[in-house]
Design a binder for these strands. Structure first.
Lengths: 289, 289
DNA sequence: GACAGTTACGCCCAACGTAAGCATA
DNA sequence: TATGCTTACGTTGGGCGTAACTGTC
């Protein structure tokens, strides 16, 4: 279970081709073949079908492990490298779209910060592997409860804000303008699913306790305006933090919803003890207001 | 960052000795020295001080990563092995002490099951690495909220029960027998900390929102009777699920407490799709009652 | 027959053990 | 001086590439 073999395996599985993976990794096709053979021999199990090249049941299982494993490996290397390196003069901040709020905008003017909007699921990995120096993620949680994040590395998480929710309704929606709207009333509505830009539908469903098999339009980008446009065009409802909704959509469309013990929370992710510029930015984000 | 090197590194750090680690791992002292040198060369950082042998800052950081990393590696190997192997005729069930309740005792009589009481923190690892076939863990959570477990592997978690809480008071405690006791009222009390047997004090503190720096007696075993005895002897309060408290302690000592949206929850951990005997046991645990 | 994965073979590097070196208590 | 980590060196096994082979479309 050499990580090299694992890396080759995921490349082959992803590309569906030995020779493709070889090109990708800078090996010969033969080496890739030997890697897979070594893995299969080690585990005494067929991992891939050939012709067509596709993971077997065991291979699929291994793939589920391989991703987090290789991620953690990169994270470990990045983490000690970060300790050894001098504090960078420039800080890269990864933030999921909905984590960008007034608090961040106020804290930003520190020179040498570059803000990188990132799909919500990629933020922890980006911070862990050292691609970014700080991360801001958002999500749904009970008030003062921490978010449920994948633990790719021992990151320090700090809550930096919680906010009530609002729902975006298309113009002329029967519920538009009705006060006292409750999230539970919308359980059966048709929702947009924008896991990268907005709040993942799965999280909403989990919070509501509804199974959530209703097929809905999915948007994989990270652009909030597109998300609002899709919502306004009637492709489905969208849940947003209240201030973001108010900023992005006309007043009639953004309707506050009451949700039972449910808030939009944003958290700061810092790798170990941040240093230099990253530390001051982290302080400004957690400290004031 | 070969896993072998990592394994050697944690052994050296744990034993505080190169030669000790060598004995432990079946290498020569020289090989261990070369392993550490290779790791340090690869990461371009000193990981250990020699004489005395102790991790540096960077080494300590790497150690935090190494544990979960090696665990996941074992989990991956065990997971595919489990897929390939025939369903075992014998099932080992790992359970944290407080996860053993009437529901489990009723489901158990299936022949060929061995029950292994395990420190709560070790249950997920035991299931992931294949040391056990099923796991039962308990913990504190909001009603119908899943437990926060370390994700060592893609395990299937299923809630199998939730229960109210009770607190164990020493005989003659001023609060004994007082009805309508609330957990928040006990925030400043002296608590026992038995993270392996009982409910970790850190979890109680987190739920109460109190910082929790109060030094308290800690019990590292997994025996509930010892825990109760310690509590009865006045070494500190103990939080337990209500039925367990009623079973273990005299009526006067086990006082129900009202906790705001807080229950004792137990969950079943199954690796992927359980097969054979494990599957039927899992069904009996999740299904009835 | 062409494409794609496997097998054979040879080279080279890397990992281990033996043994000598060296620093600290 | 003894203990314990490091370094030197020789051997061996494993990993990679080249090239020949084989199975499938």
């Amino acid at each position: 279970m050499d990580p090299h073999l694992l890396r080759t395996f995921v490349a082959v599985a992803r590309l569906g081709s030995f020779s493709g993976a070889a090109r990708d990794l800078g090996y010969t096709q033969s080496a890739v073949s030997q890697h897979i053979a070594a893995l299969e021999g080690d585990l005494r199990t067929e991992l891939l079908t050939r012709r067509p090249v596709a993971p077997t049941a065991a291979g699929a299982r291994l793939l589920e492990h391989a991703g987090p494993l290789l991620l953690r490996l990169d994270a470990a290397r990045a983490d000690v490298a970060r300790l050894a390196a001098a504090p960078p003069g420039r800080v890269i901040l990864a933030a999921s779209p909905l984590a960008v709020g007034p608090r961040l905008l106020a804290a930003l003017p520190a020179a040498g910060v570059t803000l990188r909007i990132t799909a919500r699921g990629d933020v922890p990995a980006a911070v862990a592997t050292g691609a970014c120096d700080l991360g801001l993620v958002d999500g749904l949680a009970a008030p003062s409860d921490p978010l449920r994040l994948p633990d790719v590395a021992p990151l320090t998480v700090t809550g930096v804000g919680e906010e009530e929710l609002a729902v975006l309704l298309p113009a002329g929606h029967p519920l538009a303008g009705r006060p006292g709207l409750r999230l539970a009333d919308l359980a059966d509505a048709r929702w947009l699913d924008a896991p990268d830009a907005g709040i993942p539908l799965a999280a909403v469903r989990a919070a509501l306790g509804t199974p959530g098999c209703a097929p809905s339009l999915r948007y994989d980008g990270t652009d909030l305006h597109t998300l609002c446009a899709l919502s306004a065009a009637g492709h489905g409802l969208t849940l947003l933090p209240r201030r973001v909704a108010a900023r992005l959509a006309p007043e009639a469309a953004a309707v506050p919803v009451a949700a039972p013990r449910l808030v939009h929370r944003t958290e700061l992710l810092t790798p170990g003890a941040p240093t230099g510029l990253a530390a001051t930015l982290a302080e400004r984000l957690t400290g004031g207001g």
